[in-house]
Amino acid sequence: MSGAVPDSRRLPASFLATGSSSFSEFLGAHAPQLLPGAGLPEQGRVDVPHGTTIVALTFADGVVLVGDRRATMGSFIANRDMEKVFSADEYSAVGIAGTAGVAVEMVKLFQVELEHYEKIEGTLLSVEGKANRLAAMIRGNLGNAMRGLSVVPLFVGYDLETRSGRIFSYDLTGGCYEEQRHHSVGSGSLFARGALKKLWHPGLAEDQAVDVAVEALYDAADDDSATGGPDLGRGIWPTCAVVTAGGVRFVTDDRLEELVTALLARRRSNPGGAR
């Protein structure tokens, strides 16, 4: 790794090359061994932690992104308080499902990518621009995905042009698709999507939107063993990012505890949440 950054020599030519404002392109040219998932063996499969369910939905002022906290290795719980929802920059957030190690590294590169562009160009990337940069990173991981080390993010951003929240989903080849209203990825996504269809309404307020997202995640955890439900004993709540014109904000643990407690009370003797 130390070969990538010269300590006391002149900056290599690639540092002074003109043209690209992209950090990942620079990294690919100058130090490809530092790209997420680089240098993993070509053959064989390994058991590594996987992240599970991410839920996103739009509301009146923006978009909410929620993730559970469990990472699994097969039927084994590898981590019960892992964070899978991150702010990418001031106006966007990304949630990750799939191979945890590669995914977290990819989010880290994505954050540097956006800040790097900001510093060099002196302006913010458009929401589509950010979504496409992430798509290029997913595409770069295709070789690993074919060996089972896939990363499936869900990207949300506040569009300063249209003044609305937007959701983008991805496939393993880097295909980037804009989703309307709400979406979910990961092992529990089928159940979360079912819940979202029934719970989401146009023009939700922020509080309601967070409530719906937490409830959809609860339904995912109800039927998917790899998705972690709220853990009252340990005080582990979902990670919940709210992206609006005011930037990215994470809902506090205290607020999440209130929401989860109320949800559990509603579900007592009504486990399916019929209404």
Partner: peptide, 23 residues
Amino acid sequence: RSDGREHTNPQTQHPGEEHQDPQ
């Protein structure tokens, strides 16, 4: 702004010194 928690940012690995929203 109603409430807020500090960002979870894998780049800033020191709790307490984390990147806060500039607002």
